[in-house]
Simulated assay, not measured.
Amino acid sequence: MRHIAPSDLAILLVEPSDTQRKIIIKHLKEEEIHKIEEADSVQAALRQIRDHRPDLIVSALHFADGTGLELLRALKNSASDADIPFMLVSSETRKAQLEEFKQSGVIAILPKPFTRLHLGKALNAALDLLSPSELQLSLYDVTDVRVLVVDDSRLARNHIKRVLSNLGIVQMVEAEDGQQAIDILKNQMFDLVVTDYNMPEVNGQELTEYIRQHSQQSHLPVLMVTSEANDTHLSYIAQSGVNALCDKPFEPETVRALLFNLLEQH
């Protein structure tokens, strides 16, 4: 597949404020993006998507007829639209309000106001999703790499699998929580575990400690995905034996670099 440039993108901008739409469109045009459709409500966005499927949705959080999360959920529950990359633009900073977006496979959360650097990084994440590029490894054929994906959110698992699939990984097994992952690890061999941190019963840290201390695959590389922002907490997680930490949203470029380092070292 050819690499997609920003100028190739067809974007649906969903924002209730005329002023904010003009500001965001100005930023998008500075990135050479000119194919921009507009909607000012959740229902208007859904009608637009039915009529003309965009490559990327850039959405605000609050609307008179609902929220950006409701729009995202509607897309994720649609067989034809679930894979459209979704970018949130919001001044919201409360962790609880943003956590559901992070768990739902959003590709980026941009602050309001955002900088050109913020936008460029988010657009790159979208382009990476839309332009699969196989990870080149010297020690493995990437299609032989066996990955266990562990997350209690189905939407998050789907997003992680899509990113990994774009890198050429085809052998993936899913676990809905840490306990299910432990049961799977007792019977199957893997080359990599990608696990969420926050999960019921057995969390990602406890899963990693099991792998290191009790499993027959104690040297198995573990990439932990977390929305935790507390440095002290992250340091504590790292002490459990994880090989790498990755923030949510799960950004393809970051994941590519982390996986290359992890798999080339093992």
Rank of each mutant, 00 (worst) to 15 (best):
V145G: 15
L139A: 15
L119N: 13
L148K: 03
H118Q: 09
V106N: 02
L110K: 03
A82H: 10
L135G: 14
R73D: 04
L130W: 07
V142I: 15
K121E: 13
I84E: 03
L135Q: 05
S153M: 12
Y140F: 15
S80H: 04
A108R: 07
G120K: 11
S78G: 05
L139F: 13
E99W: 12
L75N: 02
L123N: 08
L117R: 11
I107L: 14
D151W: 07
T93I: 14
K121D: 14
F114Q: 05
S78M: 08
R146E: 15
L72Y: 02
R116Q: 13
I107C: 12
L137F: 06
I107D: 04
S80A: 11
P132D: 00
T93H: 03
P113W: 02
L69M: 02
V142E: 10
Q103F: 07
Y140M: 13
L69P: 02
K102L: 14
D152V: 04
E92Q: 06
E99P: 09
E100I: 05
E70W: 01
S153H: 06
D141R: 07
A96K: 10
G68S: 00
R116D: 12
A79F: 10
L98F: 13
K76I: 03
V106C: 13
L130F: 05
L69N: 03
Q97E: 13
S104E: 01
V149W: 05
S133G: 09
L72N: 04
I107P: 09
V147G: 15
V147A: 13
E134F: 06
Q136K: 11
L129K: 11
F101K: 00
D141G: 12
L137D: 11
D152Y: 12
I84W: 00
D141I: 13
S133W: 05
T93L: 08
L129S: 07
S138T: 15
S91N: 00
G68C: 04
L71W: 00
S78P: 02
N77F: 04
K95A: 14
S90Y: 05
L117T: 11
K76A: 02
L127T: 03
N124D: 15
A82C: 06
S91H: 07
F114M: 13
L110E: 00
L123P: 10
D151G: 10
L72V: 03
L123D: 12
H118T: 08
D144K: 11
K121M: 12
G120A: 03
Q97T: 08
Q103V: 04
G105C: 15
I84Y: 00
S80L: 06
A125W: 07
E99N: 15
E92R: 08
L119Q: 09
G68N: 00
L98K: 07
G105Q: 08
L123V: 12
N124C: 14
D81E: 05
D141N: 12
E92P: 01
L148F: 04
Q97W: 04
N124T: 10
A125I: 04
E70P: 01
S131F: 10
F86H: 01
L129N: 06
L139C: 15
S133K: 07
F101Y: 05
H118N: 14
G68P: 01
A79H: 08
L148C: 01
S78W: 03
L75S: 07
